[in-house]
Design a binder for these strands. Structure first.
Length: 108
DNA sequence: GTGATGACGGAAT
DNA sequence: TATTCCGCCATCA
């Protein structure tokens, strides 16, 4: 990584996600300037401490689903947080595409 | 330095 | 449309 803290970029992008909206790891990676670093985004969020105020729950995979196993507490927590923000899940535990917001940090 | 893993993405079947 | 397989890249052992 040439950047001092690429993780900070990810953090800022996550923090830039509007409430009630969700985005995908690949989207964050693309916005950060690394299209194929979707997994890296996941790694960064994984290293996020519970103390972090970042809306990590607004980040899901490209399928629109939570990447955690349904028997995991993390899965329930993320789903609960999204539901608290108005994000609804269908019978397949997927987020409605309408809730998918390409927030775009407005680079220029 | 090498091999395996992972909060993923996309294409193929 | 749903499931499966392969590919990418950074981190960990």
């Amino acid at each position: 990584m040439q950047e001092p803290e690429l993780r900070e970029i990810i953090w800022q992008l996550v923090a830039a996600i509007p409430r009630g909206c969700v985005t995908s790891y690949g989207e964050l990676a693309a916005q950060s300037g690394y299209p194929n670093h979707a997994r890296f985004v996941g790694t960064v969020l994984k290293q996020l401490p519970s103390d972090s105020a970042l809306p990590w729950h607004r980040v899901i995979n490209a399928r629109g689903e939570i990447s955690f196993p349904q028997n995991s507490e993390q899965w329930h927590e993320q789903r609960a947080r999204l539901a608290s923000e108005g994000v609804v899940f269908n019978d397949k535990n997927r987020v409605r595409l309408s809730d998918y917001c390409a927030f775009k940090t407005g680079p220029t």
